[in-house]
């Protein structure tokens, strides 16, 4: 039998393995497979490859600790929420907003204070001091201004808790 008549189109065979061909075509391929050892081997090879791949993935991912994973995700969400809160805080206390707000508040306070003093008291009243709030951001231990050299790559990271900068470079061999 000529080769072209003997074998199934390989793309269709791949679709057949995945159960993605029409039922009539699947039947035709099944019949062909019972007569053709080459195509049968192709199907077997594909099935073995499939098992290999599944094993490869499972072997490598089965050692992941689910509870540590869960804890990490929840901690990261908390951390991100904290960052967002910090950003809002910093925005609120940034000079752009803090200066005009403080100026406005001072004017309003002075106006109220003097109107109160001159209208009702005519004497010195107590002056309260308002504490200034500051927000401290968790900054990296080092800022990299520049780098150069005989390197193939440079990577800047930081440790998760103490935010220590890690500068990693690959020397050109």
């Amino acid at each position: 039998m000529p080769k072209s008549l003997c074998h199934i189109d390989p793309i269709m065979l791949s679709q057949f393995i995945d159960g993605e061909v029409r039922p009539d075509e699947a039947e035709r391929i099944r019949k062909h497979l019972s007569d053709c050892p080459d195509c049968r081997k192709a199907v077997n090879d594909n099935q073995l490859l499939s098992s290999c791949f599944k094993n490869y993935i499972n072997l490598n991912t089965s050692r992941i600790n689910p509870s540590a994973f869960e804890t990490n995700v929840l901690a990261k969400i908390d951390q991100k929420n904290e960052i967002i809160r910090d950003k809002i805080k910093r925005l609120l206390f940034s000079k752009k907003i803090l200066v005009p707000v403080t100026a406005m508040a001072s004017v309003v306070f002075l106006l109220l204070y003097f109107s109160y003093r001159f209208t009702f008291l005519n004497s010195d009243g107590p002056i309260r001091r308002f504490p200034v709030q500051t927000s401290v951001a968790t900054a990296p231990s080092a800022i990299i201004d520049s780098f150069s050299g005989e390197t193939t790559a440079v990577m800047i990271m930081q440790t998760p808790n103490s935010h220590e900068t890690i500068l990693w470079y690959n020397e050109k061999v």
């Binding site: 081997k41 098992s51 599944k54 094993n55 072997l59």
Partner: peptide
């Protein structure tokens, strides 16, 4: 397809 090519052994 050989005996050695068994997914469980191979990995």
């Amino acid at each position: 397809g050989s005996e050695k090519f068994s997914p469980s052994n191979l990995y």
